[in-house]
Write a protein that binds this DNA or RNA. Structure first.
Lengths: 214, 214
DNA sequence: GAATTAATTGAACGTTTGTTTTATTATTGG
DNA sequence: CCAATAATAAAACAAACGTTCAATTAATTC
């Protein structure tokens, strides 16, 4: 047998990516074999090499596009203007929505960094740093303007990112909480970490639905 | 060749554990081969099987003892009594100290859960849940007594744990901040998440040195 | 100092790994 | 409908994998 009826390169590549993200998220990059991945797609292992030159390049592609999509999502959702509290709320909402929607690829991008060669690792970390810089900037401007009360903006930014990314560790859709519930509660917590006074908090909550379009 | 001069079972086992934690933390469980591990120890691969029946059991042993040590550290450091804010400060300080001191085994215990069989996974998760329950209890009692202002204790507990465990992602000893600096700043942040008023915060900071003995 | 036990080596086992090559079939464009 | 191209299968490769086994030497016990 060779080319099968109805075979389509675009569909196959999409199927490979989807299966790869799911399998790698569940079992880890090293634990997933090319044959196992091919089996999930319904194809022979050799066929994978028509779309990706090797296993590492496949992983790298998944991670790079995840990070680029995260940055693009934020660029689309970022308020053009607004006070620091509003911008922080928007950042939190966008971050949580994106990560909950892409739990698998987030897992891959966070856990499989060590499987990349030095050059590819640097490329991913560069994207990650660029994204984190967005939050640091919000915090710094808020601290400078007096809207926030933050002792160490760099450290607070790292703590916030760890906290809000951690949602995917325990949150499951159809749980006792909806994504909107979780978003609202995490927005309140980032406000507290930013040192915004209690009375102010409610006014700056950025509704999740406002980001659906972005 | 066979038994080598100066060989000692206890020392070899300790060397295996140490090398395994370091290698697995760096490259991942699946990516580390028994031969590679043996090479790091300075021994042949077959010798490892005198101490651990197989690779998975070695991983499980490392993870179980890490979790048990974490729980033991908290039991030793836990204040016999005290108000919720003091206990939360103690929890934060102990957690950060433990995880910074054991960065490698923390990485292993957090990242390699998926490499365990179902039964072994359950055993580890049971220990983890028991530990997390300690924090939830502090938060719940603080919320009940009015010392804290928390909307959702279970969610806040998860967020706090993610935040304070995240220290090991970016913190490196001999950085611009000392462990004591980092501990103090994270204590302040957990206080904010718990809804303790600004004025109160300072009074409940639990010095890192008080835990050195534990 | 002989007998016993502890610790390790070295070779080997059958699988599985990522990847390459070659042949074959489906689809597309003229 | 024929030529070109796209998509895949099938087989094969050497290397690496976890693990087992028998042989061998060091340390300990009596």
């Amino acid at each position: 047998m060779a080319r099968t009826t109805g075979s389509d390169g675009e569909k196959t590549e999409a199927a490979i990516r989807e299966a790869a993200v799911t399998l790698i998220a569940r079992h880890g990059y090293e634990a997933v074999s090319m044959r196992q991945l091919a089996g999930e797609v319904g194809v022979q292992a050799a066929a994978l090499y028509r779309y990706f030159p090797n296993k590492e390049e496949l992983l790298f592609t998944l991670m790079r596009e995840h990070m680029q999509a995260l940055i693009a999502a934020w660029e689309a959702a970022r308020p053009a203007s607004g006070d620091p509290a509003t911008r922080l709320s928007a950042f939190t909402a966008n971050h949580i929505r994106f990560h909950v929607e892409r739990r698998h690829s987030t897992h891959v991008s966070n856990m499989e960094l060590r499987s990349l060669s030095h050059a590819k690792l640097s490329a991913i970390l560069k994207l990650r740093t660029a994204y984190e810089k967005e939050l640091r900037q919000i915090l710094r401007e808020g601290a400078d303007s007096g809207a926030f009360d933050i002792e160490d903006t760099a450290l607070t930014a790292m703590a916030m990112i760890q906290m809000i990314t951690g949602v995917i560790v325990w949150f499951r859709p159809n749980d006792r909480l909806s994504v909107a519930d979780v978003t609202r509660k995490y927005q309140a917590m980032t406000m507290r970490l930013a040192g915004v006074e209690q009375e102010e908090e409610a006014g700056h909550v950025y509704a999740l639905d406002e980001f659906r379009a972005g």
